[in-house]
Design a protein around this nucleic acid. Sequence first.
RNA 1: GCCCUCAUCGUCUAGCGGUCCAGGACGCCGCCCUUUCAAGGCGGUAGCACGGGUUCGAACCCCGUUGGGGGCACCA
Length: 613
Amino acid sequence: MDPGEGLRLVLPARALDRDRPARPGPGPRRPGDHLQRRRRAPAERPDQPAALRHPDPDLLHLPRDDAAARRRRAHRHPVGRRPDPRRPAGRVRHPGPGHADQLGQLRRPRLHRGWWPVTTPAGEVRTRFCPSPTGMVHVGLMRTALFNWAHARHSGGTFVFRIEDTDAARDSEESYRHLLDCLRWMGLTWDEGPEVGGPHGPYRQSERHDIYREVAAKLVEAGHAYESFSTNEEVDARRRAAGQDPKLGYDNADRFLTDAQKAAFRDEGRSPVLRLKMPDEDLVWTDLVRGEIRFAAGSVPDFVLVRGNGAPLYPFVNPVDDALMRITDVLRGEDLLPSTPRQIALYAALTDIGVAQGTPRFGHLPYVTGEGSKKLSKRDPQSNLDVYRDRGFLPEGFANYLALLGWSIAEDRDIFSVQEMVEAFDVTRVSPNPARFDLKKAEAINATHLRALPVEEFVDRVVPYLAAEGLVAEPPTAEQDRVLRAIAPLAQERMVVLSEAVGLLRFLFVDDVEIEPAAADKQLSGESAVQVLDAATAALGELADWSTPAIEQALKDALVEGLGIKPRQAFGPVRVAVSGRTVSPPLYESMELLGRERTLARLAAARGVATAG
RNA sequence: GCCCUCAUCGUCUAGCGGUCCAGGACGCCGCCCUUUCAAGGCGGUAGCACGGGUUCGAACCCCGUUGGGGGCACCA
């Protein structure tokens, strides 16, 4: 769309500063400000029914008549709870984020005084996933994608995929491609975005520079943004001179520059950054996963929208694109939570100039942590999705596990399909606490999915791993296929990830097996091993019917009965001889598939090892 | 330092004021089954961070403390 359409200049710039004295370096905070901070302030408005104060269930496409669900939502959202008659209304010092606006009505923004226009979008849910293509794909990132996707799918909305490739130094085409590949691997299809297009494109920020320039110009024109010439050193010095902590950051001083002063700075050769004029209001929103969050007025300084060199910055570009793409629900990592007040302020300004149609709902997802409780680092190999893909995690198994990081489908259940997740997913039921990535559990969940795979499906998925090792052709020959299908049910239940098929099934697809040294030490060292091998060879050599039951009978007769040894000792050497390992699929079935010739050859070869050792 | 945020078994969670001496899953430990390894079956271990308040009643609501995490850029 043309961001220019509907541009209206509402307030003269002067008016915006009405209740700000024009003194230099007013500072964003006044003494005692921190004492007025309210945590999750009780914002009940007894004059409004609770239902009206919660985002309309219709907008979220939540089940309307599920009383329990409604109660749960109310719990998550203090603003949606019933008024407590014991709590004096006088404690409510601020009207909150404009509850009426949450019904989707677009209220005329009156900046810097009165209502702060947090307008909840009406209509169809639109979520987005907007990674920057720098390096590997992080599992936490993937979970964010999954939740956004599930939220859109659950509510019959639209899932938008946008690439934030504004950092030329770090972005690469390769990781861009990889990102698309990872999303597709997990089945997270997007309705608008790269390669599929859509009405709000382009979907790569590198192709949207003109838009940002235009929007920035309009913000300045409307008095929402202003040129700022202060260097960090100057801000610092002013803070210190005023006896304040320099860590407070920018002091909004350039808001009050006269044209003459600006001209003077330009003459010095300075090029200004553009900053957004932050409102003199508490910035509040009802977080989809955390309930009400409030930042005190003045605690967030005017922030930079556009660099001195004209390059737009992330905190500017991201909301602009969300606004233009009509995103209604922003689910993102909790690391972005502290920047949300700035975004909300920006949205108000964007709404004012007609670029945005209100403010989206925000939901800040908890961190995925690694060992300890630190956020899972990008440098931690455990955080790389490729590691799991390469090991042969199933997309459905991995998605299932990822979903469990912060969400649960039911009290007594944690295995489910992606489809089932979509049906049940409710963002407001996402837990706010950080979740440790637990490899053991991920494996257990995956193993369950692996076992549940139909045989043909299992074979199809395992073939690439076997083919990569040169064990089978791709596609497998008729004979290989026969063997695979026969062994699949037996292999499935002793595997956790697909790559394990290589070690487990290799012996079926080679002429001569290589015996693992540890296995040889354990099972082929004593003299009894030679005896066992000889007895097995004799029994099998003359077997008329080469079938699993016949093999079983013959071996039991020859070894357990004949030699009078325990099954454990009897079958150990045979297993190692046949498979080369101490762990294998069931023995008799394996031997049947291997055939008499190869089986006898391996018994002989193992006998050689046993006598030599 | 300031701001924000989180707090139930080792881990992920259920819990929405009485139905909870807290349920499930992973892990761990036993036992059964068994030709190995698994799978499966049965059983066990282990938790409401602390202190106040509200209430007839608190894991649940409020306040605080403590502890963890994150953010405070002309990075994204």
